[in-house]
Design a protein around this nucleic acid. Structure first.
Lengths: 325, 325
DNA sequence: AACGTGAATGTTAACGCTAACATTGCGTAC
DNA sequence: GTACGCAATGTTAGCGTTAACATTCACGTT
């Protein structure tokens, strides 16, 4: 910076002013400084700036299962939005989702002096661990249940489940079976709730949901069991991956979809339209989730303290062959 | 730090020594300082440290299409390995892959004073843009072709393509058709090369590859065209997503797989085993790619300058129903 | 007893930047 | 013509850490 100042015959402070768009600099001076910066290839030292301003311009993201379509897309939205807001994103992905591992991740991010944190760790237990953060550091929880004093962004799981269940009933099914995700996942429970509510309202039989792990193989197993029953008319599977496994099991068992059984999933992964048959599903706008998370977080950072805020991202029912006769 | 020093009645420098595991500190003193740090909840200021050491402990990653299974998994491997090596990872994901956007990303990362960069941007053109980096900053290119003076990690695409093509021939096909990825992708070309070579060696007819975009819909279109021909015995599709689309097209056209046509893909996404029929494919160890990238990068960072290094990650043929009679 | 030696600790000065206050100089009012 | 105000720029200090050099002190050597 001193070099640039010398080059234009001004003080380093004026150079700093140009860099920070301070208004009290003559336009002509500003230009001269800009040119000198360019000529000398000067780059501001972010560590020095962070030291004196006490702002790292960094946001931390704790994520779990980041190779799945959903979290990966959310991460993508976060990164884009953070950049637009002038922040850099530091990722910390977990291999296991426990109180200890989340705490360790929080610790690592704190060490980096992040100004705020987004947690994509949709286990019900996460909320508790994070409540320690409330009042300390701005944070947003994605699909992690409500944490008093923090931001929360979630997809309207229940509405999606309701819509897809109603759709299956409308297609003539007497009732709808449900292959749920793991019980300790917030998203899984939201979907169970919506599904059950519609069945109750419609006076349809409510069978106990089958539990899967989100993986295709668990969907496959659920599919085998449902195929064996022989009295199933419609199945709402809690995500597209499991729905794929279920379709496979049905196919092997000679159960035709949608001929014998109607099937619907959740997520709308890019592959869903090309399953056999193309899968009816609920589209989640993961990128929007990422964007909204950053909005909520940046608001807190600007306020200089955590704030309780909530955002719900709407869903969209996508009807395809697997659920239409 | 001064507070800690005061607490134990020592100088701040001794505290610094404890923090940096300097040997010349009495074990007893070390313990006292550790305790005071704990008691006071002191956290070192990374900006101050970065300022004086001129080391940010940060590595940058430029990625493209990070919502796809491959890049997302690679990213995951990178993040894990970087953490183990004591580095923090800053992600910059691109929405478009052009010389300008890559340069902009490099610029943003440079501003963050990253100590090295990994580029997951598998277009042939990337190499040129990055060659400007050679000699400047340690960098590793993933699947981006060789860049003189930089590290490069790639999956052995050609070997994978050779193996899968030979497998299809072994199953009795007179020749193998190929649905390739976009021509400007390094991976796509590697697969074309391996495929063609095996056909040549076997004296089989080499048909012009059909070009897709990696997406299921492009695979679907290719599938329709191949189904129309009626003389196709086997197809090697350049990735699993396109293979899914192709399977769908075949299904609609009444072409049975593997009865009428043998099909194989590439990647081994988690869904592949549950396609209809389960898909023969080539497994890529994306996590290993991430790990190796960090190894190569850390080596350069330790050396204090870019080094030309190459790592090739092996592949594995996974035979499933789609290619076996 | 004086002296060197080396382990353990202390002191000082940067690192590159911004905040806060200080100075300059020019136009305007009286 | 002096005083004032305000825009534009300059000067100084300090953010929290580590590097480099300085000091102290215990101990063994001669």
């Amino acid at each position: 910076m001193a070099d640039v100042a010398r080059e234009v015959g001004l003080s380093h402070q004026t150079v700093s002013r140009v860099l920070n768009d301070h208004p009290l600099v003559r336009p002509e001076t500003r230009e001269r400084v800009r040119k000198a910066i360019e000529d000398l290839g000067y780059r501001p030292n972010s560590a020095a700036r962070a030291l004196v301003t006490r702002r790292s311009q960094t946001l931390g993201v704790i994520t779990f299962n980041s190779t799945l379509y959903g979290p990966a897309s959310t991460l993508f939205g976060i990164e884009q939005a953070a950049r637009d807001a002038g922040f850099v994103v530091s990722i910390d992905s977990l291999t296991a989702l426990t109180a200890t591992s989340v705490r360790a991740a929080l610790d690592r991010l704190a060490k980096q002096a992040v100004e705020g944190i987004i947690v994509i760790a949709p286990l019900s237990g996460t909320a508790e661990v994070l409540s320690a953060l409330a009042g300390q550091l701005p944070a947003v929880v994605v699909e992690g249940g409500a944490v008093p004093g923090l931001g929360a962004v979630s997809v309207d799981q229940e509405a999606g489940a309701r819509r897809v269940t109603r759709h299956l009933l409308d297609q003539g099914a007497a009732t709808v079976w449900h292959v749920a995700g793991p019980g300790d996942w917030v998203e899984a429970e939201g979907r169970v709730l919506g599904w059950r509510r519609v069945l109750r309202e419609a006076g349809a039989a409510v069978h106990r949901p089958l539990r899967g792990t989100w993986s295709p193989s668990s969907g496959y197993q659920a599919g085998r069991r449902l195929a064996d029953r022989g009295d199933v008319e419609a199945v709402f599977v809690a995500n597209d991956q499991m729905a794929l496994g279920l379709l496979r099991a049905f196919h092997e068992a000679g159960v035709r979809v949608p001929g014998d059984v109607l099937v619907a999933g959740f997520d709308d992964v890019p592959e869903a339209a090309y399953f056999t048959p193309p899968l009816t599903t609920v589209r989640q706008d993961f990128t929007a989730v990422g964007r909204r998370s950053i909005e909520l977080l940046v608001e807190q950072v600007a306020a200089g303290r955590p704030l309780e805020r909530r955002a719900v991202v709407p869903v969209e029912l996508v009807v395809r062959q697997s659920s239409t006769r």
